[in-house]
């Protein structure tokens, strides 16, 4: 495992998109070169998207080391499947699709493991271990934990859209491409996700 320093990147604004027109053209060229065996071209793609991919995976996998492993695995799978990539489609949504699927699989496995663990050992420890490297702002951590609990109550198909749109700032058309769904479906799910989040959040306050 690498011993890199950890940083908290600046939050992404909601109007940012994962790629613009220039990147799109550049991606297609780099993919083509990588297909022809130019590994360095794939390296450019990795460097272009790794930061963003790590952020997205980190929304589902709270362990930074696991998130990094999953990001690496995502790039490996993408490299191995370059021949299957349809050049008429955009590269980035395909990359994030693979990354999100890996992260969700990992998240589900962890969830099952925690359930089994809590069944046998009633453990009151926090699910999210505190990172000793960060300061200890208890209030914000408590608020964050509450938000996280409410988000976790939302069914996965809605939660996924909520996270990608409202936390990661992907546009609804980008989410549609990542999840391979129609944009209308994504917009409906987004509205449903926001309504459910608001409902659960208010209910929590009235308890």
């Amino acid at each position: 495992m690498r011993t890199a320093t950890r940083v908290t990147p600046t939050p992404m604004t909601t109007d940012q998109t994962i790629l613009d027109g220039d990147d799109r053209a550049g991606d297609a060229r780099l993919v083509e070169e990588a297909r022809r065996g130019q590994r360095d071209s794939f390296g450019v793609l990795v460097r272009r998207y790794e930061r963003r991919l790590l952020r997205v995976i980190g929304r589902f996998v709270r362990d930074a080391d696991a998130a990094e492993d999953l990001a690496q695995e995502t790039f490996l799978r993408v490299y191995e499947r370059l021949e299957q990539f349809d050049p008429s489609r955009r590269f980035a949504p395909w990359l994030f699709q693979i990354g999100v699927n890996l992260a969700l699989d990992y998240h589900r496995k962890q969830k099952r493991r925690r359930k089994i663990w809590s069944f046998f050992f009633s453990d009151s420890r926090s699910e999210r271990p505190l990172d000793p490297a960060t300061p200890d702002p208890r209030e914000s951590q408590e608020l964050e934990a509450e938000v996280r609990q409410v988000v976790d109550r939302i069914p996965e198909q809605f939660r996924l859209v909520l996270i990608l749109r409202d936390l990661e700032g992907f546009s609804t058309s980008e989410i549609a491409a990542i999840l391979d769904r129609k944009e209308a479906t994504i917009r409906w799910r987004l509205a449903e996700a926001r309504n459910r989040f608001q409902e659960f959040w208010e209910r929590r306050l009235t308890k």
């Binding site: 890199a4 990795v46 990001a71 490996l76 608020l143 996280r148 309504n195 989040f197």
Partner: peptide
């Protein structure tokens, strides 16, 4: 709805490795 979105936005950005150390060498 707006208030709940503000609360949602309080979720911290996940901590990630500084990508000065790119993933590429290991990949």
């Amino acid at each position: 709805l707006k208030a709940s979105l503000v609360a949602l936005g309080s979720l911290e950005v996940p901590q990630t490795y500084d990508t000065i150390d790119s993933l590429w060498p290991e990949v």
